[in-house]
Write a protein that binds this DNA or RNA. Structure first.
Length: 480
RNA sequence: GGCCCUAUCGUCUAGUGGACUAGGACGCCGCCCUCUCACGGCGGAAACCGGGGUUCGAAUCCCCGUAGGGCUACCA
C-alpha cells in the first residue's frame, strides 16, 4: 500500500508540543513506509484562524525538520469541494436544512440538561415541508445542513492502537455538517479532504476518537472507503489537564527561543507515547524511523516532563558537532550583547572554543550564553559564596599577587603552561593547588564553578587574566 | 448526566498467562573521578488503583467499583 498520511492543524495558535508530537508520528510513519506526508491547514473556523499562527506552525514544523511532501492545502481554498458534497447529500435526502438558530439550540440544550436529558438535537427540521421552509427563510433565518444519522445500529471505529471501538448510533444526533455561513464543520470537511487527498492512515490525537463515528457516518453517506485510524494518546500537563499557556512553555517556538535543539525535542517527543525496542532512549532520527511502528504506541495519556526534555537537550548539546552547536549558540550570545552581530569571521574560533568549554555543563543554548558571559564582559561582581570561601581567607591577596607574578612570565600562555606554573608555585609554597586555583577562578570569572581553570586562563588570554587578578587583589585588600 | 478511552516507580515506559526477586530512562540520594561545577562510572530508595472472578499459575484475561482524560459546539 502506498501510505499517505496528513497532519492537519487548525491555525488558531502556536504549534504546541502535542501537535508537534502528532505531526512527528505521522512523519515517522510516512518515512518508515516510504509514504507521503501531507500538510493540511484546517482553517474552517473563520473567527479563530489567523495568518500569523499559520506562518508560525509552518515555521515550527520546518525548524523541527518535519518537512511535508505535499501541501499545505488550505481548507478555506477548497470550499467548492465541500459544497458539492453537501449538495449531493441534500439531493439524496441524506442531509437536510435546519433553521434552528444558535440561540434556540442553546436554550433547548440548557433545558434538556436541567431535565436530565441528553442535550442532543431533536431532529425537528428533518421533515420540514417546502412551505415551512419558505416561511422560516422569510423570517430571515439562514439554514445549516445536518446529516441524517440513523437512530439504530452501531458504528465501529477500527483503530490500529485501540482495536475496534463500538458506538451506538442512538447516542449520536443529526449533527451539523455545514454552518449557516456556508462553511463546513470539521467533522464534514476532514472526511472529504481525507478522501480527496487519498489518506490511508488517519493518525491523530485521542481527543478525536469520539468524533470518528460521525466522520465514518459522513464517509458512508458519501460512499467513501474508510482510512485506517490510529488515535494516539494525549499529552497532558503535570496537573493532568490539557496543556495550555498557564503551564508555561508549551509551544515549539518558545522552546526554540529558550535554546532547545530540534534534535532533542524530536527525540523526547518520540518517547512520549512510543517506546523503542531496546533500553536505549537517545536515538538518532534514522534509528527512530527504523524502529517506529504504531503497534508500539501506548494507549495511555502521557504527562509532559520538562526535566527529561532538558536532560536530552543537554545530551545533544554536548554530543552534536561543535560547529553546529556554535552556530546555534551565536544568536543567544548576540541577544545578550556578548558578541557583535554579525559576528566578525576572525572571532569565530574564539567563540567556538568558548562554546566547547562551557557546553558540557549546561542544558540549553541560552544557558551556554549565561555560562560564557565572563569571556565577553568584565567582572563586575564576585559570587557571594565564593567571596566568603576564598577571598575572605587571610593571605589570599598575597597568593594571587604571587600567582600573577608567575603568570606574567609564562610564554606561551596556554592551558599546559599556566597549569605548570600554578602546580609549581603551589609545590614551592607547600600548599594544595586548590588554594591557588579556587580564588583565581573567582578572580577571573567572578564565579566558583565553570570549566577547568586553565581552560579559562587560556581562553581569556594573558592580558585579561593579569588585569582581573589585579582587580581582585585590589578588591580583596579594600574589603578585608 | 450520556457515550467513549485509559489505569505498572513522582514522571515517561518495558511487560501480550509461568523466564518478574516487575526491567530501562528522567528526577532524587550516596560513592568514585576531580581545581570547582558539570560530564562519566558504580550503587540505592521508588510502582503493578481497589475488589471479585477465570486458571495449577495473573501486572498480563473477564466483571464490578474507583480515578483520570476525551467527546457530547453553527471549535478543531
Amino acid at each position: 500500500m502506498n501510505v499517505r498520511v496528513r497532519f492537519a492543524p487548525s491555525p488558531t495558535g502556536s504549534l504546541h508540543i502535542g501537535g508537534a508530537r502528532t505531526a512527528l508520528f505521522n512523519w515517522l510513519f510516512a518515512r518508515k513506509h516510504g509514504g507521503t506526508f501531507i500538510l493540511r491547514i484546517d482553517d474552517t473556523d473563520l473567527e479563530r484562524s489567523s495568518e500569523e499562527s499559520y506562518r508560525e506552525i509552518l515555521n515550527s514544523l520546518k525548524w523541527l525538520g518535519l518537512e511535508w511532501d505535499e501541501g499545505p492545502y488550505l481548507q478555506s481554498e477548497r470550499l467548492d469541494l465541500y459544497r458539492k458534497a453537501a449538495e449531493s447529500l441534500l439531493a439524496e435526502d441524506k442531509a437536510y436544512l435546519c433553521y434552528c438558530t444558535p440561540e434556540e439550540l442553546a436554550a433547548r440544550r440548557r433545558q434538556a440538561q436541567a431535565e436530565g436529558r441528553a442535550p442532543a438535537y431533536d431532529g425537528r427540521c428533518r421533515n420540514l415541508t417546502p412551505q415551512e421552509r419558505c416561511r422560516l427563510e422569510d423570517e430571515g433565518r439562514r439554514p445549516t445542513i445536518r446529516l441524517k444519522v440513523p437512530d439504530k445500529g452501531t458504528t465501529v471505529v477500527k483503530d490500529v492502537i485501540r482495536g475496534e471501538v463500538v458506538f451506538d448510533n442512538s447516542t449520536l444526533d443529526d449533527f451539523i455538517i455545514v454552518k449557516s455561513n456556508g462553511i463546513p464543520t470539521y467533522n464534514f470537511a476532514t472526511v472529504i479532504d481525507d478522501h480527496d487527498l487519498g489518506i490511508t492512515h488517519v493518525i491523530r490525537a485521542e481527543e478525536h476518537l469520539s468524533n470518528t463515528p460521525k466522520q465514518i457516518l459522513v464517509a458512508q453517506a458519501l460512499g467513501y472507503e474508510l482510512p485506517l485510524y490510529a488515535h494516539v494518546p494525549m499529552i497532558l500537563a503535570p496537573d493532568r489537564t490539557k496543556l495550555s499557556k498557564r503551564h508555561g512553555a508549551t509551544s515549539v517556538e518558545e522552546y526554540r527561543e529558550a535554546g532547545y535543539l530540534p534534535e532533542a525535542i524530536i527525540n523526547y517527543l518520540a518517547l512520549l507515547g512510543w517506546s523503542p525496542e531496546g533500553d536505549e532512549e537517545i536515538l538518532p532520527l534514522e534509528e527512530i524511523i527504523r524502529q517506529f511502528s504504531l503497534e508500539r504506541v501506548s494507549k495511555n495519556a502521557a504527562i509532559y516532563d520538562n526535566k527529561k526534555l532538558t536532560w536530552i537537550n543537554g545530551h545533544y548539546l554536548r554530543t552534536l558537532d561543535l560547529d553546529k552547536v556554535t552556530r546555534l549558540a551565536i544568536p543567544f550570545l548576540q541577544a545578550k550583547g556578548f558578541v557583535p552581530e554579525p559576528l566578525p569571521e576572525d572571532s569565530y574560533p574564539h567563540v567556538r572554543a568558548v562554546v566547547a568549554a562551557v557546553r558540557d555543563r549546561v542544558k540549553t543554548l541560552s544557558e551556554v550564553a549565561d555560562a560564557a558571559s565572563y569571556f565577553f564582559t568584565n567582572i563586575t561582581e564576585y559570587e557571594e559564596k565564593g567571596v566568603r570561601k576564598f577571598f575572605a581567607i587571610p593571605g589570599t591577596a598575597d597568593l594571587l599577587e604571587q600567582a600573577k607574578e608567575r603568570l606574567k612570565n609564562v610564554e606561551p600562555f596556554n592551558k599546559e603552561t599556566t597549569e605548570k606554573a600554578y602546580r609549581d608555585l603551589a609545590a614551592e609554597l607547600g600548599i594544595p593547588a586548590g588554594q591557588l586555583i579556587h580564588p583565581t577562578r573567582l578572580a577571573v570569572s567572578g564565579r566558583t564553578m565553570g570549566p577547568g581553570l586553565f581552560d579559562i586562563l587560556e581562553l581569556l588570554g594573558k592580558d585579561k587574566v593579569l588585569a582581573r587578578l589585579d582587580q581582585a587583589i585590589e578588591w580583596i585588600r579594600r574589603n578585608f
